[in-house]
Every structure is written in C-alpha cells, then in structure tokens.
C-alpha cells in the first residue's frame, strides 16, 4: 500500500495522476452536461433526480481533484485555466444531448454509470491508499444512479416509440461510450503497479456483457463489432475531443473569465481577516 504522493517513484506518480485525471474529468464533465436537464426533465421527480445525480458527480469529481491537489496542483490548474486539450474525459460525457431527447440522457447515464460501477470495483483494490479509501463512499452514492437509469429505461421500453428512442440513443452513443475504456499513455504502469489492478480491456469486456444483456432484454439492439471498428475518431483519453468539447469548455469557464479571475475564490474570509467568534 502506498499512502501518499511522497512514496511514489516518478513513473508511479505519472500513473496515479493519469488515472485520477480520467476519473475526475469524466465526473466533472458528465455533471456539467446533466445540469442542462435539471429543469427540463419530463417530471418534477426527474428534475430533482438528475439535479441530485449531477451534484453527486460533482462531489466525486471534487474527491478525485482533491487527490490531484496532493500533487501540488490547485483548482485553477485543474479546471478553470487548464488547456481544454489537456482534459482526459471520454467523449461520451461531452456530447451535447439530442434536442429534447430524454432517452439520450437516460441511455448516457446508464452506459456511464455501469462503467463507473465496474471501474470503482476495480479501484477498491488500488495499491494507492488515498484512491482505495474513497471508493466505498463514491460507490455507495452510485447505486441509486444505476437504479434511476435502469428504471427509466424499463419504462421507456414499454412503448414502441420509447424503445425506438432508446435504440437511436444507443446507436449514437455506444461508440462514444467505448472511449471510456480507451487507454491513457500510462495504462501499463497503472496495471503493473496496481493503481488499478484490472486492465481497461477486461473492464470493457465485462461492461459490454452487462449492457448488452440488459438492453437486449428491453428489445434494443447493441453493436457487436470489435471496439476498434466502432470507436469514434476522437478518443478523449488521448486529448482528442469532439467539436462539442470546446463550446462546453467555453461555457463552464465563462463566468471565471468574465470576472477576470485568477484564482478560485473562497466564499469565507480567511480566519485572520474574519471577526467571527466560533
């Protein structure tokens, strides 16, 4: 077990960082997209659920970014002034939703959360203790995300029109979901050093089995071709992104730039400046 950054060799450090960046960026960007639905869901319950899921994913992003801060970065480096080409999230989470298509949001959530569940399971055995220590908490909060998307998929699939919407969303999103399992430059070290003992290729195989089985049960066809044939041109994990990424990035950094910020301000005054008795 490795307890912190100071115990890592340069090679191990690069591996831990690479794993954390994909985890944190996925969570942060998927949450950014979810927030677009939080006042546009089909029911008030759906609005509340998606808002809550977005909040959870932001909470998880914060947990993983915290661990990157242990390496000496701050939030400005990690989000607000980071070169958009340095983000390592999968293209699945950056794509805009099809206009008004709730099935897009539900299918995306299902594909993403199923992946996250498997990845977290693999990280329970991480040799980097700060990651392993956080997995239980995150996993506990993910359970109802999966229940939420599965429940919606089952209801949508009850009608032909709904099933067709699911099918179109799966056709569109499945290749991008495969980028969740694309390797960073550090995959071999990540596995060799047990930062994540299970290789992405194995996780992908498990994921395909799970989602294909579930979706087939709903009467939805899932692509069976090899990943290499299905993958989109942009892979996310290597820094290449779809056109949608730049505008999303501009949007979520807009206020930061508009206010001329150079730091992420704290809402509370520093203790020495505050005239408050606890």
């Amino acid at each position: 077990m490795v307890d912190g950054p100071e115990e890592l060799s340069d090679r191990e450090r690069a591996a831990v960082e690479a794993e954390l960046r994909t985890l944190a960026d996925d969570e942060f960007v998927v949450a950014e997209r979810y927030t677009e639905w939080q006042v546009r869901g089909p029911t008030l319950e759906a609005d509340i659920a998606i808002a809550n899921i977005a909040q959870d994913e932001l909470g998880h992003a914060r947990l993983w970014y915290d661990l990157l801060e242990d390496f000496g970065y701050d939030q400005v480096d990690l989000i607000w002034e980071r070169d958009p080409a340095d983000f390592r999230h999968a293209t699945l989470v950056e794509l805009p939703f099809e206009d008004g298509d709730w099935a897009d949001c539900v299918v995306r959530g299902y594909l993403y959360d199923t992946h996250e569940h498997l990845r977290l399971q693999a990280l329970e055995d991480s040799a980097y203790a700060p990651i392993a220590d956080r997995v239980g908490k995150v996993k506990g909060e993910e359970t109802y995300h999966r229940e939420h998307t599965q429940n919606w998929l089952e209801r949508l699939a009850e009608s032909r029109a709904g099933r067709e919407r699911i099918q179109r969303a799966v056709d569109r999103l499945f290749p991008h979901a495969l980028t969740l399992f694309e390797r960073t430059d550090h995959e071999e070290t990540i596995v060799d050093t047990d930062v994540r003992p299970e290789p992405l290729a194995d996780l992908r195989a498990e994921w395909r089995e799970v989602v294909s089985g579930f979706l087939a049960g709903l009467g939805v066809d899932v692509p069976v071709e090899d990943a290499a044939e299905l993958l989109p041109d942009s892979r996310g994990r290597d820094g290449t992104h779809t056109e949608a990424w730049r505008s999303l990035y501009d949007e979520f950094t807009f206020t930061y730039r508009q206010l001329g910020r150079s730091e992420a301000p704290s809402l509370m005054p520093a203790p020495e400046e505050a005239d408050v008795d606890v």
Binding site: D56, G59, R62, L63, L267, M268
Partner: peptide, 10 residues
Amino acid sequence: TYTGCPARDY
C-alpha cells in the same frame, strides 16, 4: 455525510 456536501468548506 455525502461527497457533494455544499457546506464542505464552511
């Protein structure tokens, strides 16, 4: 209590 707690810093 949960990771997304908005009162974390506070």
